[in-house]
Amino acid sequence: MSELSSDHLLGIKYLNEADIELIFSTADNFKDVINRPIKKVPSLRDITIANLFFENSTRTRLSFELAEKRLSADVVNFSAASSSVKKGETLIDTVNNILAMKVDMVVMRHPNPGAGLFLSQHVDSRIVNAGDGAHEHPTQALLDAFSIRERLGAVSGKKVLIVGDILHSRVALSNIFCLQKLGAKVMVCGPPTLMPKYIQSLGVEVEFNLDKALAWCDVANMLRIQLERQDTRFFPSLREYSMLYGLTSDRLNRLDRKIIVMHPGPINRGVEITSEVADSEHSIILDQVENGVAIRMAVLYLLASKIERLA
C-alpha cells in the first residue's frame, strides 16, 4: 500500500485504515523535515494550491499555508469576507474562476456540510476538506490520532473520551471515524442537549457524568462550546457548563492514573478546560499544533502525487 485510495480528502469516512497508516508514516518523515534548520522540501514546486476559507479560521488556515509553503507549492488565499461571494456568486462559479487561473488543488473550509463533496463532483481539482459545517474536519482528526500514536505508541486499543459540544462539532465526528478505524474505543460525554440523537448508532459509548468518563479513558479530548453554531440555549449558563463539564486539575488529581489531555483549539480557558490543565504536563495541545503541519504536508504530498502525471 503506497497510494491513497481516494483522490480527495473529503472526510475520514472515505479513508480506510491503510490510508491513515500511510498518511501517518509519511507525516513521520515530514515531522523530521520541519524540525530541521531548513524546513523546506521542493516536492510540490510545480503545484498551485488555493486556500478557500468561507468561514473564519486561524490555526487551520495557518497550518495549511505553512504546510504548503514547506512543500514549495505556490499558494493563493481567499476568504469569503472580502470576496465576490458577498456579491452573490455561487460556490461552483467562485471555484471554477479560481481554477481557470490554473490551480491544481483546493483546500476549503465552508459552513455547509458536504460542500467539499459537492465541489469534488463538479470541478476538476483535488479537494481537501478543511472543515465543512458540523460534518467533518479530517485533518484535525488525523493530527489528533497521530498525536495519540506519538505519545502512547499506538492508537489501537486505547480509550479516547471526547467531551463537550458533540452536536455541533465536526472535530468529534471525524475523530470518532478515525479512532474507530484505527481500533480505539471512543466515548462521548457532554450535556444531553448537546448530544446528537442517534450518536449510539456510530458505535460509541455515551456518558453524561464527566468524572465517570474520565475514570474510564486514557485520553480526553476537550471540545469548545460552539456558540456561533447554537441558535438556541442548550444549557443554563457557561458557569454551570464549566462546573459540570469543565476539566480542572481537581478532577484530574482524583484519577488513579495519568491521562493525556487534548484540545483542538481555540481554547476557551476557564470554560471547558482550566488554564492550569491546559498548560500542565498532561496537555499535548501544542504537540497537536506542531503535528498538524506534518499531517497536512503528508496529505497534500500524497494527494499531489495522484495529480495527472506530467509525462
Binding site: 503506497s2 497510494e3 508514516s25 509519511t26 518523515n29 523535515v33 522540501v41 521542493p42 516536492s43 510540490l44 510545480d46 512543500l71 504530498y301 500524497l302 499531489a304 502525487s305 495522484k306 495529480i307 495527472e308 502525471r309 506530467l310 509525462a311
Partner: peptide
C-alpha cells in the same frame, strides 16, 4: 525522496 525530480512522473508514488 522529497528532492527527487520525478515526482508525478512515475506510475508509483514516491514513499519516503
Amino acid at each position: 525522496t522529497f528532492f527527487r525530480d520525478d515526482f508525478r512522473r512515475r506510475n508509483s508514488p514516491l514513499i519516503p
